[in-house]
Design a protein around this nucleic acid. Structure first.
Lengths: 314, 314
DNA sequence: CTGTTAGCGCGTTCAG
DNA sequence: CTGAACGCGCTAACAG
């Protein structure tokens, strides 16, 4: 009826009728049922987000930025955590699809290709963040992992470090794999020997264990490939009563609040996290408004933030 | 038709028909439309969560725990950030209600009573976390803020501190107000003079500014009423080139990963964040399954974690 | 400009 | 046990 036209703002309505409807709606405390509207329009204005774990500050920032960008355009965010488990991720994607999300932003876990491929085949807009499934025809926004790692390790080499170990999350994750590749490139370029320690999981605890092994190899410097690994390394170093950078230098990937609070402040490779989120949201929004151009792959630049944990001159 | 009965598991169906339907559904890649089902059943199995900001680790953990507990029961989480702005929070709650969430978990910002009252009047299950709107007939789970603050300040006093300043988030937030009250109680009990510095906002930056003012009063100890304030205080102290605890002692509310990484490790009042989330989810789930008992108010215990930032003997 | 009608995809009747 | 019809709240299309 007319009421619908008034409230949804579309179609014709006389000023008089508009007034009447508005007033009535107000008094009855009428609130449109978004879900019924979605059923007929075939669009829920809802987007599903699948991250590894919101407790990881990297993902928390991502979630925050994406939520803001979407909210601005009337979309709402369905948040889920995969714990980097592909089975769990599959279930989550299914649940999200069943809820008729218009789009999906996913940080794909290792080996999560099947469900995502099915999703895009089913015509859902999909944007991958932080990592990409090989061969999947979907937008993706990531950072320059290999280059960032390479710069970090070269920084250590330039400071005279010869035994540089790498502590990384499981390399099943594309981002980790790329960072390790960058590490290898730099190590080879400087004619050094690689020492790679892969954590058993994406947790601070696994990072601690891997870092203990790394320290047992008596490196003069550690490159940690994620903020969780950096946290683990800090604990291992403290546990071994080693001094940074005198006994062992440390350079991490990803910059967090606390990196400037510790002594010495940490030299790190900073990621443009907020921009990753912003771009991902933008790409998705474009797809949602009918853009059908071929999938785009955006790679954002990391930057080396030199502080004092590698033996730099003050 | 029969298919519906088979797939939804209810009603009668012959084993033979069941088989046929299952197979057909599989081959067609049929995925039930949760939204259509919701329209007829009047339940979306979706819960809205309104926190101040997921980037705050306190809320990130809360979101994580709540998401897990709900997911286990087939619910999905709609995540939003209020930035502690009641106007914004009102819009978010409206949007969430329009999306027909079955329930709401909210950390109410200062003066957010109206929309929440309307929501419960409208029959939505609501659980408040971390803070409560006065006089709102809804469940709430919070921590023992006043007592935690009191213990913290008494700890400082027992160590001989006489000039103890308090740096707090805006006291419009119930949690902050309670912590300041606890500070006052302890200060009075020890016959000391209160010095209270209220930040202009719930951000690290506002905490830094308030901490600068606090330090200008030459206190021998600082009590910071939230993790953001602690972060700000750490920066202000470093900026003033003061040593902890020799020049100024520090005790914070809320324990985070990095508090043991700084030197000295921070003495803090730890909150049972995960349990807050778990209990909130449980309460909501109970309401969702028809519990109509009068609103419950759960208060969880905080604990003093003694480390070395207050001049404690090692 | 406005009233009426159909139907989005389901679950729930109520007959068979 | 199964098929058919109805309706959840809304918008789209079509008459008036």
């Amino acid at each position: 009826m007319t009421a619908s036209r008034v409230l949804s703002g579309a179609g014709y309505s006389s000023g008089e009728a508009r007034e009447a409807v508005r007033r009535a709606a107000d008094e009855l405390g009428y609130r449109p049922n978004t879900i019924a509207r979605a059923l007929v329009q075939g669009a829920t204005r809802t987007v599903g987000l699948v991250v590894g774990d919101v407790e990881n500050p990297f993902f928390a920032t991502l979630a925050r930025v994406i939520a803001d960008a979407l909210e601005e355009r009337g979309y709402t965010l369905l948040l889920t955590n995969s714990d980097e488990d592909p089975t769990r991720e599959g279930r989550l994607v299914d649940a999200l699809l069943g809820r008729q999300v218009d789009g999906l932003i996913v940080a794909p876990s290792a080996g999560a290709g099947r469900h995502l491929a099915a999703a895009v085949a089913g015509g859902v807009a999909l944007v991958q963040v932080d990592r990409a499934v090989r061969g999947l025809a979907a937008d993706v926004v990531l950072v320059d992992n290999a280059h960032g790692a390479e710069v970090a390790v070269s920084h250590l080499a330039a400071l005279g470090h010869q035994r540089i170990a790498c502590v990384t999350d499981p390399v099943g994750l594309g981002s980790s794999r790329e960072r390790v590749a960058g590490y290898r490139t730099a190590i080879a370029a400087h004619g050094l020997e690689p020492f790679i320690f892969e954590a058993a999981g994406v947790t601070q605890h696994a990072g601690l264990a891997a870092s203990r092994h790394a320290l047992a190899a008596r490196p003069t410097a550690l490159f940690t490939a994620s903020n969780l690994m950096t946290l683990g390394a800090m604990r291992a170093i403290r546990e071994a009563a080693l001094a940074i950078p005198a006994d062992v230098a440390l350079i991490g990937f990803d910059d967090l609040d606390w990196t400037t609070l510790v002594d010495p402040p940490l030299t790190v490779v900073a990621q443009p996290v907020a921009e990753v989120g912003r771009v991902a949201a933008e790409l998705l929004l474009e797809r949602l408004t009918g853009d059908t151009k071929p999938p785009r792959r955006v790679r954002l630049r990391t930057s080396l933030v030199v502080r004092h944990s590698c033996g730099e001159r003050p």
